[in-house]
C-alpha cells in the first residue's frame, strides 16, 4: 500500500498477477528498442492494441492486447498536441519482442524491420559512395 492509498481507505487492495505487469506510460512509452544483437533500433512512441468497439457494451468482450509497437515522427505532435495519423507510424510487431525491461529487446535483426529503413537508406545511398564507405574502419 502506498502513502497515496492511506488517504483513501475505501480502495480495494491491488490485484496481483502471475505475469509481468507493465504500466504503459511508466514501463513502455519512450523506452529504447534494441534488436537481437543489442543494436539500437528506435524508441517506443506509442502502442497499437486490438480494437475496442465504440458505443457498444464491453462486458464479456475479451480484454484488448498489444499488437504493435509504434514509432515515427512524433516530435511535432508532442510539442503542438495531437498525434500523427496512424498510417504515418511504423509498426514493430509485438510478437518480435523478446524481453521488456529497462529497454525493449527484440528477437529479430534490425535489418528486417521497417523502423530502421532511414539508417539503411543513408548507408546504401550516401555512406556507400564515400571512398572507404564499403567496409568497416581498419
Amino acid at each position: 500500500m502506498t502513502a497515496n492509498d492511506e488517504d483513501d481507505i475505501s480502495l480495494a487492495p491491488p490485484d496481483s498477477y502471475a505475469g509481468q505487469v507493465l504500466d504503459a506510460q511508466l514501463h513502455l512509452l519512450d523506452r529504447q528498442v534494441l534488436d537481437t544483437d543489442g543494436v539500437p533500433v528506435t524508441t517506443v512512441d506509442d502502442l497499437e492494441i486490438t480494437d475496442i468497439p465504440i458505443d457498444e457494451p464491453l462486458r464479456g468482450t475479451p480484454a484488448p492486447t498489444i499488437i504493435n509497437i509504434l514509432t515515427g515522427a512524433t516530435l511535432g505532435t508532442r510539442i503542438f498536441g495531437g498525434r500523427p495519423p496512424s498510417s504515418r507510424l511504423t509498426r514493430i510487431p509485438y510478437r518480435d519482442i523478446k524481453d521488456i525491461g529497462v529497454v525493449v529487446t527484440l528477437g529479430v535483426d534490425a535489418e528486417v524491420l521497417d523502423a530502421s529503413w532511414p539508417e539503411r537508406w543513408v548507408r546504401d545511398h550516401i555512406i556507400a559512395h564515400i571512398p572507404g564507405g564499403h567496409h568497416d574502419p581498419e
Binding site: Y17, V21, L22, D23, I66, R95, I97, K98, D99, G107
Partner: peptide
C-alpha cells in the same frame, strides 16, 4: 498491461 495472455512466439 499484464503479460499473461496466450503464449506467443517469444512472449
Amino acid at each position: 498491461f499484464v503479460i499473461d495472455g496466450a503464449p506467443g512466439q517469444l512472449l
